[in-house]
């Protein structure tokens, strides 16, 4: 049976993982490679790495850090931020990523999704979306609007229409980042997660707001997500205590949510 995934998310600036709240006030956590290695040893299922300033600074993605992380982590690894072309995608794959995440750039140029899916297979292209609850209004029938550029710019696009368009263009996975819930540790936005999961047939990843294992369990059951992105809960210095992957998985098992079994004494080679 296909299990649900716990994905550790890294917001990277200059090779270091940082932690933001509602897309602002980033504080420094650790070098990306060091944290990736620690989480790999803790048997995290997957890692996603966003070069969060690449897009705003209009520069290419930090391939050196991608390569360094890929050298130490033998679980899947998605990379996003600053992807503008097919060549950028290919560079990221060559640096050791399996999947490429597109976000603001895909809003500006949706055809990048189609091009990526054609060249590398649709399973390779992840459409990441920043969504905010704005209430139902003309052009936003779902009440959730798509934002870009680190939640700074409203697009006037409806979240559900955009994810359906993204799927049609060839996105193999959709990440739903709730701007409202990001960094709050108050739980995922289950409504929009569920609404997206109901509107597309590709896997949906919940993101933004995980504070405990019950939040994660809710996203993976009520929210119908295939995976949950977590960050603070694993490593934020803002929290008194970070929770090991093993503990999260045990708590998910108790809620009846299947995950890749945590293996006792497993050598991480």
């Amino acid at each position: 049976m296909l299990t649900k995934r716990l994905i550790a998310c890294f917001d990277v600036i200059d090779g270091r993982v940082t932690k933001a709240q509602q897309f602002q006030d980033n504080i420094d956590v650790a070098p990306a490679t060091e944290l990736a290695q620690r989480l790999y040893e803790d048997q995290i299922d997957e890692i996603v790495f966003y070069d969060i300033t690449a897009s705003a600074q209009r520069r290419a993605i930090d391939l050196e850090t991608v390569r360094s992380v890929a050298h130490h982590v033998f679980v899947p690894f998605t990379v996003g931020g600053g992807i503008r072309s097919l060549d950028d995608m290919f560079e990221v794959l060559k640096a050791g990523a399996e999947k490429i995440s597109v976000d603001s750039m895909a809003v500006r140029n949706p055809d990048i999704i189609r091009q990526g899916a054609e060249a590398f297979g649709r399973q390779c292209v992840v459409l990441s979306t920043q969504v905010k609850h704005v209430g139902i209004r003309p052009g936003i029938p779902s009440g959730y609007e798509v934002f870009i550029d680190g939640a700074r710019t409203a697009t006037g696009m409806d979240a559900l229409e955009w994810v359906q368009q993204g799927e049609a263009l060839g996105a193999g996975e959709i990440v739903v980042n709730s701007i409202d819930n990001d960094g709050t540790a108050a739980g995922y936005d289950l409504d929009i997660t569920r609404a997206v999961a109901d509107s597309v047939n590709v896997p949906v990843v919940a993101s933004g707001g995980a504070g405990n294992a019950e939040h994660i369990g809710a996203a993976l059951t009520q929210g119908q997500a295939s995976a949950a992105i977590i960050s603070s809960i694993l490593y934020s210095p803002r929290l008194e205590r970070n929770t090991p992957v093993r503990e999260l998985k045990a708590a998910l098992a108790a809620q009846g949510v299947p995950t890749r079994p945590w293996v006792e004494g497993s050598s991480t080679a």
């Binding site: 049976m1 296909l2 299990t3 649900k4 995934r5 299922d45 649709r122 399973q123 193999g172 996975e173 047939n201 590709v202 896997p203 295939s226 995976a227 995950t259 890749r260």
Partner: peptide, 13 residues
């Protein structure tokens, strides 16, 4: 078949 999510993405036995 499209009666499940495609692609399959994740850890499976």
């Amino acid at each position: 078949a499209d009666d499940r999510r495609v692609p399959q993405i994740g850890w499976n036995e």
